[in-house]
Structures are given as C-alpha cells and as structure tokens.
C-alpha cells in the first residue's frame, strides 16, 4: 500500500495492516528489540528521478503486501539541503534477509548495490553526526534552535542505543 501523505517528506510503501498495529521490524515472527535493530536492520539504497522511483514503488508494492519486503520509503523531492540532487529510495529489511530482497530489486532493474545499516544512519543523525549537522546548517537555525534539535535527536536516538532490550518503536517521519 503506497502512502503518499503530503505532510511527510517521504512516500511510504507499507503492508496494509500497518494501521492495525502490524510491525515491520520483525524477525522470525518476533518484534525486534532496539539492540537487534542496531545489529541487523538496514536498507538497500536506490537513487533516481522521482518518476522512476514511483514506478519501482508500484512494482514493489506487491512484495510488501506479501511480506517479502518489510517497508519502503522514498523522497518526494531530492533532499537538496543535504547536497543530494536525486530522490532516494530506501528498501528496508533485516541484514539476514538482504540478499533475498536484493534479488527482488535486481529483478526489477536495480544495479547499484549499496547497503546502509540503520546503526550507521542513526549515528549520522545523532548530535555531532554528519547529517544532523548538515541539516541544521541548511536550515540556518540559530544556536538555541540548533541545541533544541540536537537535544531532540539525543533523546529520540539515544534511547535506541541506551535501552537495547526494549522493543524498537519507529518514529513518525
């Protein structure tokens, strides 16, 4: 199910039961903990023009509905404030299933193969991390605003690192 909410920067491809409490950070039928997400969760990165990603998302939707792919998100427009001139699609899965998911992507014409772990991404969005600091810079935030953004990131992402036994809860994007 493709969810294109204009209030979000991202377009998502979810399993339809997401609205009935279905989780996508699941492995072997069990919700993943923060620690398991940091160790195993990640995504294949696909870059392209919006039209090509929209076409691919439509093709991949059935795999999400069949639970062969847990969840997908992609940019509605290139995140130029981060220095990127293409839209980015992220096809999420557990590292232990990633080659199966890659085979699906390859069968739909994806060639550039790049896996980024969620841990790496969270580190980049943590205070002092490359992406968070670039984002703050791009928004011309004053010092107090920047501190508030860093504190929000510290609380939100820090809990994932500090409480590895808790069940992982994704946040709204």
């Amino acid at each position: 199910m493709i969810v294109d909410d204009p209030n979000s920067h991202f377009v998502f491809v979810y399993h339809p039961e997401i609205y009935y409490g279905k989780r996508y950070t699941v492995y072997d039928g069990r919700p993943m903990t923060n620690g398991e997400v940091l160790e195993n969760w990640g995504k294949w990165i696909i870059l392209g023009e919006l039209a090509s990603l929209e076409k691919l998302a439509a093709e991949l939707n059935s795999y999400v509905e069949r639970e062969s792919i847990p969840v997908i998100k992609y940019d509605r427009e290139p995140p130029r404030n981060l220095g990127i001139d293409e839209c980015v699609m992220m096809v999420y899965c557990d590292k232990r299933c990633r080659e199966t998911v890659w085979a699906i992507l390859e069968s739909h014409g994806v060639k550039l193969k790049a896996w980024v772990s969620e841990k790496e991404t969270m580190e980049m969005w943590s205070p002092g991390g490359f992406l968070l600091e670039r984002w703050i810079e791009s928004k011309n935030l004053d010092e107090n605003q920047a501190l508030a953004v860093r504190e929000d990131a510290r609380v939100r992402l820090g809990s994932v690192f500090e409480r590895p036994e808790e069940i992982f809860s994704p946040w709204t994007q």
Partner: peptide, 12 residues
C-alpha cells in the same frame, strides 16, 4: 565484483 560510489548524505 561490483563497486558502487554514492554521496555520504544518501545514507540517511
């Protein structure tokens, strides 16, 4: 082998 190069910022 396949080598891929992408901007760091894409990883988020």
């Amino acid at each position: 082998d396949q080598l891929a190069i992408i901007p760091l910022a894409v990883g988020g």
